[in-house]
Design a protein around this nucleic acid. Structure first.
Lengths: 335, 335
DNA sequence: TTATATTATGAAAACGTTTTCATAATATCA
DNA sequence: TGATATTATGAAAACGTTTTCATAATATAA
């Protein structure tokens, strides 16, 4: 809180020889004021370096001009990229983002959202997370709400996401086209819908190609790097041969890569490796990772756009974004 | 903003048969209230699910209970880890962090800080950035302020940082101990004091060991991955031989690694590679990166602790944190 | 020209708290 | 027991805006 006693609207009113109502009107710009008075107010504002008090404004108007943004983990590249998109999308508007971190834990997520709601945010952008369809519907009656990077059933008109199954299908199909038949899959955490969708896409592609789905080639991870390491151990211990691994996100692909390196298994000479997300770091993996690109920044930017529009009372429909295969050097034709 | 008309302190007062003053006193807990009334108020609060209005509170008390946190870039692992530390340090207190992103651009940084100050934050944590010593001193007369991960001259009692020169000295010394004499250095961006300090530590270590500093082995990067790639090109084009590279941060080390991979130069067999920061991803580089660990989470956590204490009016001194060498597999004895 | 509609403006109420100030109730002391 | 100090409490002012309402000034229509 600034210590110097702030300039208030009263000071401006006195300086400009008008009432505080007029000052307010000039500042908000929603009601007509004569040019001469407007002029006077504006110069007074500039002269005294007036900064409106956010609390007084919020209290009187019932608007905070803040958008709450819930991420799951500061430091997760994919989520951070979405954050960046939101920042970008809000930049230059009167709205200000307030961030909170759900830390991939349902209770913390709930608390964080409530803390933001209590802080009177005007809109809420939730990135991923665990809120159920019911909870979200309930919440969205209270506050404009957009869900990013997650497809919640019965809530699709609030969700900006790419179709995980389709994207995953593309990735798997590419591996099949390279001649791989035994493709292992490291899935995301079981309680996460995205993980299920990605696994589904993988299985669909295999089916379509007439390749048997081998349960022993599917192993559950948790979207974190370390789980990729463990998954390789598990996979190898099962003794079923395979020529490619499709990890449900890039992070697990990095873990996988490390595990393979430790065992002297070369990528892509001995084994092809496919990720999912296309984080910025993916192109710096050794070798650069073939993956499916989720347009993260765009997702965030679109979320900001949509919520802004809805706040203005416009009815906009959710844009559909597509994932795109990014071929790099971690995959090659199966000999 | 919640649509259902909120429960106010008046409702509680009515329900509990006390005045609103008493309700406020119970809620704030700073003034004694008889047990019976306290009881009554508390049950009413629970029953009606009362949520205090942040704006009214802020307006009346002059406190926002918010701490502004300025980062330089969502998505930068090192900064994100500090953010996490701040979140951790604030968790469970009455204070709530508000984040903004300076995007490594002085003007945006300034704007973002002003936006937060205008939002009446009670304290400010700035991570890195470009504010000058003067600007910071000026700002800190207005608001409690802690600078993290940057050492600003004449402002040290507000700065939580590790000694970059010493840390860098350690790293270089380790390479020297491995028998490397020709050690290239990829520095950070020239306008950044940390970059200068790290280069200084590198030079000090060489001097101490009686090894000549060769200007041709020093090349300027900008702390980003891509600049590591370019640095290797530059270095090789100069035709001066070297057996180790010390990059001023991990990100540039990744870029370096990729560039070497492309040229078929093996790490660590042909060349040792040293980073700086120890981001979480460093241990997943191929091969795992030897680096200097900045205790990022701890830095953030300490920043939160210190600012909280100062907000309570306590005079606490800044803790000193040490960087620590983390030896992994990207370095080896020079043959 | 007069009656009526429109416009710009200021006064004052509202927003929901915290906190000062006054006072009734109670405790403490001689 | 009476006088005084202490305590708990409520009334009311304050925080700095926005917005409703009333009104004076002006434009428009007959």
């Amino acid at each position: 809180m600034l210590k110097k006693d702030a300039v208030t609207i009263d000071d401006i009113a006195r300086e400009a020889n008008v009432s505080i109502s007029t000052v307010s009107r000039v500042l908000r710009g929603n009601v007509k004021v004569s040019d001469s008075k407007r002029e006077a107010v504006l110069t007074a504002v500039a002269q005294l370096d007036y900064q409106p008090n956010v609390f007084a404004r919020g209290l009187a108007s019932g608007q905070s001009m803040a958008i709450g943004v819930l991420t799951q983990n500061f430091g997760s590249p994919f989520y951070d990229a979405i954050l960046q998109g939101v920042v970008k999308g809000l930049y230059g508007t009167d709205y200000f983002p307030i961030f909170a971190d759900g830390q991939w834990q349902p209770e913390i997520e709930y608390e964080a959202i409530m803390a933001m709601v209590q802080r009177q945010i005007d809109g809420l952008i939730i990135i991923g997370g665990f809120m159920t369809s019911n909870e979200l519907s309930q919440l969205s009656t209270q506050i404009p709400l957009i869900m990013v990077a997650r497809q919640v059933p019965d809530f699709e008109d609030h969700c900006i996401y790419i179709d995980n199954a389709t994207a995953s299908f593309k990735a798997t199909k590419y591996l099949l086209e390279l001649g791989h038949k035994r493709i292992a899959h490291i899935s995301g955490r079981a309680d996460h819908p995205d993980a299920a969708a990605r696994q589904q896409g993988y299985e669909m592609a295999l089916e379509e190609a007439g390749v048997d789905i081998i349960q022993g080639l599917i192993v559950e991870g948790n979207f974190r790097r370390q789980s990729g390491v463990l998954a390789v151990e598990t996979l190898l211990s099962r003794g079923i041969s395979f020529s490619a691994i499709f990890a449900a996100n890039d992070q697990m692909a990095y873990g996988t890569r490390l595990s393979l390196y430790r065992r002297g298994i070369r990528v892509p000479e001995d084994l092809s490796l496919m990720g999912f997300d296309d984080e910025p770091a993916a192109s710096f993996m050794i070798p650069p990772l073939t993956t499916v690109r989720q347009p993260a920044v765009e997702l965030g930017q679109e979320a900001a756009k949509v919520i802004l529009a809805r706040l203005r009372g416009e009815t906009v429909s959710i844009p559909r974004l597509e994932a795109e295969l990014v071929v790099r050097e971690s995959t090659r034709i199966h000999q």
